Simulated assay, not measured.
Amino acid sequence: MKVYKLETVQHINASIEECWDFFSSPKNLQLITPNDMSFEIQDFDGKRMYPGQVITYTLKPLLGIKINWMTIITVSQQNEYFVDEQRFGPYALWHHKHYFEPTANGTKMTDVVHYALPFGHLGRLANTIMVKNKLKSIFEYRYKKIEETFNSK
């Protein structure tokens, strides 16, 4: 299985506490997900993020095909980091780490995603043709929405 890595860094003009408050709420996922993906939370307990929390949602990531996705928060350290992993969805592996570090004028947020696709060589081809670029565009959209939310004040 070929594992790919996507890493992004963003500086946010807000305190660690403000960032954690925003990113630890699954409700805010929809705000930073492109509208054309039709992201919709199906089930979560309404609580702030904690290890073991399950979030299920539907979305249309490619070609308008609706998929179900189940994420579990595997680890979480308040104001420092959390990890979400796909338990059910389109990837053979999805492991997404979110780090928050204080800076002189706000917070440095780093996302590291390790992912793999099913179907061997066909999955590798799909990554080359569309998945890699789609993920980059999702994270670019997210970057812009976070800029609008925190850095345009």
Rank of each mutant, 00 (worst) to 15 (best):
F23I: 11
I146D: 07
I12T: 01
T56E: 09
E85C: 03
M1P: 15
N151G: 01
E40F: 03
V9K: 15
F44R: 09
T33P: 13
Y91P: 11
V112T: 15
F88S: 06
A126F: 11
W20Q: 13
H96D: 08
P90V: 00
I67G: 03
E148Q: 11
F88G: 03
S38A: 15
D111C: 07
E148N: 14
T71H: 07
M1I: 05
P34K: 06
K27I: 03
Y141E: 00
I32Q: 11
D36Q: 09
C19R: 13
F82P: 01
T110G: 07
Q77P: 06
F22I: 01
Y143W: 12
W69G: 10
Y115L: 13
P102N: 08
K134C: 09
C19K: 14
N151P: 09
K97H: 14
D45M: 06
L31H: 15
S152H: 04
I146C: 13
S25C: 08
N133L: 08
M37V: 06
W94V: 04
V83Q: 01
K66E: 14
G64I: 02
H11L: 08
E85D: 05
T74A: 11
H98M: 07
H11P: 08
M109Y: 04
Q30T: 13
T103S: 14
F22M: 10
G64Y: 09
Q77W: 02
N35I: 02
L6F: 04
N28P: 13
T149F: 08
W69E: 10
V113H: 10
K153P: 00
A116N: 04
M1D: 12
G52A: 02
H11Y: 15
L93P: 07
E80H: 12
K145I: 00
S15E: 09
I146H: 15
K27V: 04
G89F: 05
I138K: 11
M70F: 00
T149L: 11
G64F: 03
A126M: 07
S24P: 04
D21C: 12
V131G: 07
G46N: 00
T33E: 07
R48N: 04
D84C: 02
Y4R: 12
I73F: 10
Y141G: 02
D84G: 04
P61W: 03
K153D: 03
Q86I: 01
S15P: 14
Q78F: 01
F150H: 09
D21T: 13
Y91L: 14
F88E: 01
M1K: 05
T149V: 10
P34T: 04
V54M: 13
F139S: 12
C19H: 10
G120T: 09
P26I: 00
I72F: 01
L6H: 14
D43T: 00
F150N: 07
N151A: 00
N13V: 03
F150Q: 14
P34Q: 05
V75R: 15
S25A: 08
R124A: 10
K132R: 15
K27G: 02
I129A: 10
P118D: 07
K27P: 02
N68Y: 10
I73D: 05
I32R: 12
R124K: 10
Y57S: 05
M70S: 14
F150T: 13
L6R: 09
L63C: 12
C19W: 04
Q78W: 00
Y50N: 04
F139I: 05
E40P: 02
K27D: 13
Q42S: 13
Y57H: 15
